[in-house]
Amino acid sequence: MESEVPLAGGRITQGVVRVGNTVRRPVTASSPFVAELLGHLERQGFAGAPRHLGSDEAGRDVFSYLPGWVPARFQRWNDPQVAAAGALLRGLHDATRGGRLAGRHPVVCHHDPGPNNAVFSGDVPVAFIDFDTAAPGDPLEDVGYMAWTWCVSSKPDAPPASAQAAQVCLLADAYGLDVPSRARLVDAMLDRQARNARWWRNRLAGPGPRVADDHQIAERIHWSEREHAHTAAHRETFTTALFG
């Protein structure tokens, strides 16, 4: 029997392991939808996601292992990496656009397409992993989150807002965002930052088991709120870049 190698990086789902060329994850409430979605993506020829391979003898979900590396932390990404991420997200959305799984919504959103859920081949993001939060939605939910987590940072040593805004514009271009959606993108970024703070605040107030300790959760709330304040303070800079 092949050995199980724990996979680090997941902040929500515990007990994820690699076994040979597969990844095993505990079954969750979202497992049936994820299995159906990944099957649909495979039939559509979208290569930027793992394949669902059924379940193992322990009842865990089994997925194909995607070779490459997953960033351990958020960091500064260069322009080609940002553009590749935007194009990858557009490919995901187009593969579900107008389909049954999207329901009354335009697409199925990943809902967490940050660098921490991207598999890189060399220096380029080529696939998404961790589809547990995938659900029908508006494309801007994902584009707003991606613009925030790939391009924007409130850290003191981060590039100036003008440089961050230029990358947000690059991302929008790579995704192929239309003019009406570009006008809503900054609001989408702010919405995802506020929702992230709210999600972690609910984890702090809710019953166990916790996905992180109280200090870690408080830090994530503070970070989300700081990022929201940064984006709001530079709204005009971001908006101008999108229409420059």
Rank of each mutant, 00 (worst) to 15 (best):
residue 145 Y to G: 11
residue 218 A to H: 02
residue 129 I to N: 09
residue 221 I to C: 08
residue 72 A to Y: 01
residue 115 P to K: 11
residue 193 Q to K: 02
residue 2 E to P: 15
residue 162 S to K: 11
residue 163 A to H: 11
residue 52 H to A: 13
residue 208 G to I: 00
residue 186 V to C: 06
residue 237 T to I: 15
residue 238 F to H: 01
residue 33 F to P: 00
residue 118 A to M: 15
residue 139 P to R: 05
residue 104 R to E: 15
residue 19 V to T: 13
residue 120 F to P: 03
residue 5 V to S: 06
residue 163 A to F: 01
residue 50 P to D: 02
residue 138 D to V: 06
residue 178 D to N: 14
residue 65 Y to G: 03
residue 137 G to Q: 08
residue 164 Q to A: 08
residue 20 G to V: 12
residue 134 A to V: 09
residue 187 D to W: 07
residue 227 E to I: 00
residue 48 G to I: 05
residue 163 A to M: 05
residue 60 R to D: 14
residue 227 E to M: 10
residue 221 I to P: 00
residue 106 P to G: 10
residue 216 Q to H: 05
residue 139 P to M: 05
residue 185 L to I: 04
residue 115 P to D: 11
residue 213 D to A: 01
residue 38 L to Q: 05
residue 221 I to R: 03
residue 68 G to W: 04
residue 116 N to K: 15
residue 25 R to Q: 12
residue 227 E to C: 03
residue 72 A to P: 00
residue 42 E to M: 00
residue 68 G to A: 04
residue 39 G to S: 10
residue 122 G to K: 10
residue 27 V to M: 12
residue 118 A to N: 03
residue 235 R to W: 11
residue 96 T to L: 07
residue 66 L to M: 13
residue 206 G to Y: 01
residue 32 P to H: 10
residue 232 A to C: 01
residue 85 A to Q: 09
residue 61 D to N: 13
residue 225 E to S: 02
residue 174 A to Q: 04
residue 101 L to K: 09
residue 181 S to G: 04
residue 64 S to Q: 03
residue 243 F to S: 12
residue 151 C to M: 10
residue 86 G to R: 12
residue 64 S to F: 07
residue 53 L to S: 07
residue 86 G to A: 12
residue 21 N to F: 02
residue 80 P to Y: 04
residue 81 Q to A: 15
residue 78 N to A: 07
residue 155 K to G: 04
residue 183 A to T: 08
residue 50 P to A: 10
residue 125 P to E: 06
residue 63 F to A: 04
residue 18 R to A: 15
residue 20 G to W: 13
residue 96 T to F: 04
residue 143 V to T: 09
residue 124 V to E: 14
residue 138 D to Q: 12
residue 132 D to S: 06
residue 68 G to D: 05
residue 3 S to K: 12
residue 100 R to I: 03
residue 147 A to P: 10
residue 174 A to G: 08
residue 109 C to H: 08
residue 150 W to F: 11
residue 109 C to D: 07
residue 194 A to I: 03
residue 147 A to G: 12
residue 140 L to F: 08
